[in-house]
Amino acid sequence: MQTMNLLFLCTGNSCRSVLSEAIFNHLAPAGWKAISAGSQPAGQLHPRAVALLQRKGISTDGYYSKSWDDLPVSPEVVITVCGSAAGETCPAYLGPVLRAHWGVEDPSHVVGTEEEIAAAFERAYQIIRTRIEAFLALPADRMLDKQALEHIGTLGAAC
């Protein structure tokens, strides 16, 4: 597969979907691109998400919180990363694309000590990275297989 455009989607597009976009773009082969968006964008990236990515050596240049109405390309695959256990309503992208759900609890909602909050962001990062690495390891003929994509959404900690 020479090119692929993925959309990572959540409600606010400030944390989980941006982590996903940045990690994917950091790991993906040339010609593959992830974008992220939200159904109700927060208007800014979560500072802890940006700091975490920078600590991991992943660029955040050019990333911003944006609406799914402002996409520069049409994706082939849309992956929602909303955490259903948190009672979030996961937005439903209406374009004719393959969809999968990779729910991740929102670390920005964690209340606790500095260490507990940092651990929640690290957990979200690790879950997302594990899933993206699993996706990138799929044989080319399975990358657009809904069952394979949904299975990847179960890897890592349960949501």
Rank of each mutant, 00 (worst) to 15 (best):
1 M>P: 11
2 Q>H: 11
2 Q>R: 01
5 N>E: 02
5 N>M: 01
5 N>R: 15
6 L>W: 06
6 L>H: 03
7 L>H: 08
12 G>M: 11
12 G>Y: 07
14 S>P: 11
15 C>T: 06
15 C>P: 02
15 C>G: 06
16 R>F: 09
17 S>V: 09
19 L>R: 04
20 S>Y: 08
20 S>W: 06
20 S>C: 10
21 E>R: 02
21 E>I: 09
21 E>T: 01
23 I>Q: 15
25 N>L: 04
25 N>D: 06
25 N>P: 04
25 N>F: 04
25 N>R: 09
27 L>C: 14
30 A>I: 12
30 A>H: 14
31 G>K: 02
32 W>M: 14
33 K>C: 00
33 K>I: 07
34 A>F: 12
34 A>E: 12
35 I>S: 02
37 A>V: 09
39 S>F: 10
40 Q>L: 12
43 G>E: 00
44 Q>A: 00
44 Q>Y: 10
44 Q>G: 00
45 L>H: 06
47 P>E: 10
49 A>D: 08
49 A>T: 01
49 A>G: 05
50 V>W: 02
50 V>M: 07
50 V>T: 09
51 A>I: 03
53 L>C: 04
55 R>L: 00
56 K>L: 05
58 I>K: 05
58 I>Y: 07
59 S>P: 12
59 S>K: 08
61 D>K: 13
63 Y>W: 04
63 Y>M: 08
65 S>C: 00
67 S>E: 13
67 S>A: 12
67 S>P: 01
68 W>Q: 14
70 D>L: 14
70 D>A: 15
71 L>R: 13
71 L>V: 05
71 L>K: 12
72 P>R: 14
72 P>V: 02
73 V>P: 08
75 P>F: 11
78 V>W: 09
79 I>V: 15
79 I>E: 03
80 T>S: 15
82 C>Y: 07
83 G>I: 13
84 S>R: 13
85 A>D: 13
85 A>M: 02
86 A>F: 03
87 G>W: 14
88 E>Q: 14
89 T>H: 09
90 C>Y: 00
90 C>P: 07
92 A>K: 15
92 A>R: 13
94 L>W: 04
95 G>W: 11
96 P>I: 01
100 A>G: 03
101 H>I: 10
104 V>I: 12
105 E>F: 03
106 D>E: 12
106 D>L: 08
107 P>S: 05
109 H>N: 05
110 V>D: 04
111 V>G: 00
112 G>A: 11
114 E>H: 08
115 E>N: 00
116 E>S: 06
116 E>V: 12
117 I>L: 06
117 I>E: 03
117 I>V: 15
118 A>I: 13
119 A>S: 02
120 A>E: 07
124 A>D: 10
125 Y>A: 08
125 Y>R: 03
127 I>C: 05
127 I>R: 09
128 I>R: 03
129 R>W: 03
129 R>V: 09
130 T>V: 11
130 T>R: 13
131 R>W: 00
131 R>T: 10
131 R>D: 05
132 I>V: 11
134 A>T: 09
135 F>P: 05
135 F>G: 01
135 F>E: 00
139 P>L: 02
140 A>S: 09
141 D>N: 13
141 D>A: 12
142 R>H: 11
145 D>E: 10
147 Q>T: 14
148 A>E: 04
150 E>V: 06
150 E>W: 05
152 I>S: 06
152 I>F: 05
154 T>C: 04
154 T>L: 10
154 T>F: 08
156 G>M: 12
157 A>W: 03
157 A>K: 01
158 A>G: 07
